[in-house]
Amino acid sequence: MKTNDIILQTTTKVVVFIIILFSIFIFFKGHYTPGGGFVGGLLTSGAIVLLLLAFDMKTVAEILPINYIYMTATGLLFAVGTAAGALFFNVPFLTHAFGDVYLPILGKTSLHTATIFDLGVFLVVVGVTMTIIQTIGGDE
């Protein structure tokens, strides 16, 4: 994709980080407010798509040297692993656990295994979206 839009490129450099930060925020807040793995993952891939629009495929591949298929697989492993992990505690598949932990600075923080599952979803969504876009975009 050939572009030499200087305005788009400059804006993108700033905006991409904001989007990614926002997507991470929305991912972690997902259990309490709108958001979660799907939206977070989609937002992140949206950011990368924006990068692709502003720069070309090669540049983006240099900035983010990620194999998105591996990323998908990792995400699936996270999700299945969390689900199967429950079996070791003699509870049904996909049972989640949660608890509160007191961290020095943050104070009372709650931890969920559901977040790990959601992380899997996040990774799969980013991986899948980017695999699709990259393979189509990279096809001559």
Binding site: G30, H31, P34, L94, H96, F98, H112, A114, D118
Partner: peptide, 18 residues
């Protein structure tokens, strides 16, 4: 049961995780 407040997300990752 799931210590979450966003019902939709909790249904997705917990109640209907499958």
């Amino acid at each position: 049961k799931a210590a979450g407040k966003n019902m939709v997300n909790v249904i997705l990752v917990d109640f209907r995780g499958f």
